[in-house]
C-alpha cells in the first residue's frame, strides 16, 4: 500500500509541479525551484526497462508523483482496456503516485489507438458508460482517479447536459475527483463562444484534486471566429493566470501542474511558470503579478 511515512514522499502537496521531460532532469535535480511534485504521462513509462525507469526511480525518492494517463479512452464506446488497466496498476505499484488522473475523452476504437483526446457526447448513455469505466479504473488501479475536463473543438447535437453537470455527476456516482484544466476551460469556452468565468464559477471546486495550467495556440477559423488549440507548446497566457487566481481564491490551493509538452523550453522558463503558480497559491501574487 502507498504510505505517507518513510523516505519516499507520497502525498502531492498544495504546491506547483511540472510535467517531467527528460531534458530537464539534471536541472530539476540541481535546483527544482518552486517545483514540489512531478507528473508523468503514464504511457511513457510502460516499457519494461531502460533509462526512463532508471531516472524516474531516482527522482521518485525525492519528489511525490502524479500519474497522468493519456490513452485509457474512458469515454470510448469500446469496453475498457483491461490490459491497459493492468499496466497502470503496475506503474502505481512501482512508483506509488500520490495522484492519478485521466481524461474525459476517447482515444481508441475497435483496437485502433488515436493519439488524441477525442470528444464525447454529454448524454445519459455516455454518462452511464463513463461511470462504469471510471469504476473499473479505480478498482483496477487501486486508487481514486481524477477526471480531467477536455479541450474541445466540436460538440454533439444530441448532448443533453452541460459538461460541468456531466462531470459533477460522474464524480458523485463514482467517487472520482476532478482535475480542473484551466487552459482547457479557456480553450473550450473560446471555441464554443462561452464565457470562461461563468464556466469556472459553476465548476464543483470541492471535487477538484488537481489543477492543470498550460499554453495553447490561437488561430481563427474561416469565418473569423477564434479557434484555440490546446498544444501545450508555449507559456500560460495572462487570461488563464487570472482564471487560475480566481479558482484558487474561490476553492483554496490545489496541487497545480504546469504542462509544456511541445517546443519544450529551457528549464528556467518552465521554472518561472512554476514560480508564478506558487505566488498565486501562497497568496503572494498581487494583481500585478497575475495580470
Amino acid at each position: 500500500m502507498p504510505r505517507d511515512t518513510g523516505p519516499r514522499p507520497y502525498s502531492v502537496p498544495l504546491a506547483p509541479g511540472v510535467g517531467l521531460k527528460a531534458c530537464h532532469i539534471r536541472d530539476i535535480e540541481a535546483d527544482p525551484g518552486a517545483v514540489q511534485f512531478l507528473e508523468i504521462h503514464a504511457e511513457n513509462y510502460m516499457g519494461a526497462g531502460g533509462r526512463p525507469h532508471h531516472d524516474l526511480m531516482r527522482l521518485r525518492e525525492r519528489f511525490p508523483l502524479s500519474l497522468h494517463g493519456v490513452a485509457l479512452s474512458i469515454g470510448g464506446a469500446d469496453p475498457i482496456d483491461r490490459e491497459h488497466l493492468a499496466r497502470l496498476r503496475t506503474l502505481r505499484d512501482r512508483y506509488e503516485p500520490g495522484l492519478f488522473s485521466e481524461h474525459l475523452a476517447w482515444s481508441s476504437h475497435e483496437d485502433v489507438y488515436f493519439p488524441d483526446l477525442l470528444p464525447v457526447a454529454y448524454d445519459d448513455e455516455t454518462l452511464d458508460r463513463v461511470c462504469d469505466h471510471v469504476d473499473a479504473t479505480q478498482d483496477a488501479v487501486g486508487m481514486q482517479m481524477l477526471l480531467e475536463n477536455p479541450s474541445t473543438y466540436l460538440a454533439f447535437e444530441h448532448s443533453t447536459m452541460a459538461e460541468i453537470d456531466f462531470m459533477a455527476e460522474v464524480s458523485r456516482r463514482t467517487g472520482c475527483g476532478l482535475l480542473l484544466d484551466i487552459n482547457n476551460v479557456f480553450v473550450s469556452c473560446a471555441n464554443h463562444g462561452e464565457d470562461p468565468v461563468t464556466y469556472l464559477d459553476a465548476f464543483p471546486l470541492a471535487a477538484v484534486g488537481e489543477i492543470h495550467l498550460g499554453g495553447h495556440e490561437a488561430q481563427q477559423d474561416d469565418v473569423g471566429r477564434p479557434l484555440l488549440i490546446d498544444t501545450h507548446s508555449r507559456a500560460v497566457i495572462d487570461p488563464v493566470w487570472r482564471l487560475y487566481a480566481r479558482a484558487i481564491e474561490r476553492g483554496g490551493p490545489r496541487p497545480t501542474l504546469v504542462e509544456w509538452d511541445k517546443d519544450i523550453p529551457a528549464w528556467p522558463v518552465l521554472a518561472a511558470e512554476a514560480a508564478r503558480a506558487e505566488a498565486v497559491l501562497t497568496g503572494r501574487a498581487d494583481q500585478a503579478d497575475v495580470v
Binding site: A121, Y153, L154, A155, F156, E157, H158, S159, N191, H192, G193, E194, D221, D222, V223, R225, L227
Partner: peptide, 19 residues
C-alpha cells in the same frame, strides 16, 4: 452526422475545420 461546430446552436463555425 451529429457533430456541430460548437455548443452554441446558432453557431456557423465551419465544422470541417473543427474536425
Amino acid at each position: 452526422d451529429g457533430l456541430v461546430a460548437s455548443r452554441r446552436p446558432s453557431d456557423a463555425n465551419p465544422l470541417d475545420q473543427r474536425l
